[in-house]
C-alpha cells in the first residue's frame, strides 16, 4: 500500500520538494549576507560578552535588515500550501474522478487504504515542516539574536515545533474537506480559508492566554527600575503609564499632556512644556510603567501548548475523515 501512496502522490511530493528548494534558495541568497554582517559588525562578539551593552550595534544591525522580516512573513503561509496541494486532493481526486470505486473494491478495506495514504502524506508533511522550520531558524538566527525576541508574533509562528503542528493540521484539514466536498478545487479553497480562520484567532486572541501573564510595575523615573536587559526575550502584551493611584494617564496608555496639566501647575498655560518640566510633573504624580507580559522562559511551554492544540485538531480531523470514509462516502 505504501507503494500505491508513493506512486499516486509522487508528483505532489516532488512538487513539494521543489517548492521547499525554491524557498531554501531565497534563504540561501539572503542568509549569508545577514550572517556575515552579524559577525563582521562586531555584534556577535558583543552579544557573547557578558554584561556588554550592545543596544546601538543591535539597532543598527536590525535597521539594516528590517525588510527581511517581510520575506519571513511570506513563510507564514507556506504550511497552508501543504494542505492545499497535498491534503485537499488526496481523497477528493479519487471521488471526483470516480476511482474510489476501483480503490475501494480491491482486497484492502477502506480503512487500510486511508491509513496508508494518510501515513505517507503526514510523514512527508512532518519531514517538510522540519526542513522548513530548521531552515528559517538558521536563517533568522542573527536577527533573533540581535532583537532577542523569538516570542512575539510572527517570529513565534515561524520557528520551532509549532511549524510541524500547523502543517499537520492543515494537511488533515485538506483531507477532511476533500472527503466532505468530493471536489478538488472547492476543497483547496476551503482548506486555505479554514487554515486562516483557525490560525488568526489563535494568534491574536488565544495564544496570549495560554498562561496567565505576569505584571511588572516600576517607577518611570528614579530608582527601582527593572534594570538593564529587562524585556529581552519577553513577549510584552501591554505597557501602560499610570499614576501613583494606578489610574492610567491616558486612555491609550501613554502620556496625555493636557490631562497632566490639570495636575501640575507648572504645566498650566504652557504650549510646549520642556522635558524637565514634564519629568518633574511625572515624578510629582508618581508615574509608573505597568507591563503585562509573558516571560521569555515560557517560550518552549508555549511552543508545546500550541503544537498540542494543532496536533489535537489534526487528530480530530483525521478521526472525522476515517468515520466519513468508512460510513458516509460512497
Amino acid at each position: 500500500m505504501i507503494w500505491v501512496t508513493w506512486r499516486q502522490h509522487r508528483a505532489q511530493f516532488l512538487g513539494g520538494a521543489i517548492a521547499l528548494a525554491l524557498l531554501g534558495g531565497i534563504l540561501l541568497l539572503t542568509g549569508p549576507r545577514i550572517a556575515s554582517s552579524f559577525h563582521d559588525g562586531g555584534l556577535a562578539s558583543c552579544l557573547s560578552t557578558r554584561g556588554a551593552d550592545c543596544g546601538d550595534l543591535a539597532d543598527r544591525f536590525l535597521n539594516q535588515y528590517n525588510n527581511m522580516w517581510f520575506v519571513a512573513v511570506l513563510f507564514l503561509v507556506v504550511p497552508a500550501f501543504a494542505g492545499v496541494f497535498w491534503g485537499a486532493p488526496m481523497v477528493a481526486r479519487e471521488l471526483e474522478q470516480g476511482t474510489h470505486r476501483l480503490a475501494w473494491t480491491q482486497g484492502v478495506t477502506r480503512g487500510r487504504w486511508l491509513s496508508a495514504k494518510l501515513i505517507g502524506i503526514l510523514a512527508a508533511t512532518v519531514v517538510g515542516a522540519a526542513i522548513l522550520s530548521i531552515s528559517i531558524a538558521r536563517w533568522s538566527y542573527p536577527l533573533v539574536r540581535a532583537s532577542d525576541n523569538r516570542f512575539i508574533p510572527p517570529v513565534f509562528d515561524l520557528r520551532g515545533i509549532v511549524v510541524g503542528g500547523y502543517a499537520l493540521f492543515v494537511v488533515a484539514l485538506g483531507v477532511a474537506f476533500g472527503t466532505l466536498f468530493r471536489r478538488v478545487v472547492p476543497a483547496m479553497a476551503a482548506t486555505f480559508g479554514g487554515y486562516a480562520a483557525v490560525r488568526v484567532p489563535i494568534d491574536v486572541w488565544l495564544r496570549k492566554r495560554y498562561m496567565s501573564p505576569k505584571v511588572i510595575s516600576f517607577p518611570l523615573f528614579g530608582k527601582g527600575g527593572p534594570g538593564i536587559g529587562f524585556g529581552r526575550g519577553d513577549w510584552i502584551l501591554s505597557s501602560r503609564i499610570v499614576d501613583a493611584a494606578g489610574h492610567a494617564l491616558s486612555s491609550r496608555g501613554g502620556i496625555d499632556i493636557d490631562a497632566l496639566a490639570s495636575r501640575c501647575p507648572s504645566l498650566q498655560g504652557v504650549q510646549f512644556p520642556g522635558k524637565d518640566d514634564l519629568g518633574t510633573c511625572l515624578q510629582h504624580i508618581g508615574a509608573r510603567t505597568v507591563n503585562v507580559y509573558q516571560p521569555g522562559s515560557r517560550y518552549w511551554p508555549f511552543q508545546f501548548i500550541e503544537l498540542g492544540i494543532f496536533v489535537l485538531l489534526a487528530a480530530g480531523l483525521v478521526a472525522f475523515t476515517f468515520w466519513w470514509v468508512r460510513r458516509r462516502v460512497s
Partner: peptide
Amino acid sequence: LPRFGFVAQDVPLYRGFTVTDMLAFGRHT
C-alpha cells in the same frame, strides 16, 4: 472484498498510471 471483482461504470482507472503501474496497484492492494 478479495472474493469479488468489480468493474465500475466508465471503467475508472488511474489515467496517469502505466498499465504496468495499474497491475502493480492491483498486486499491492
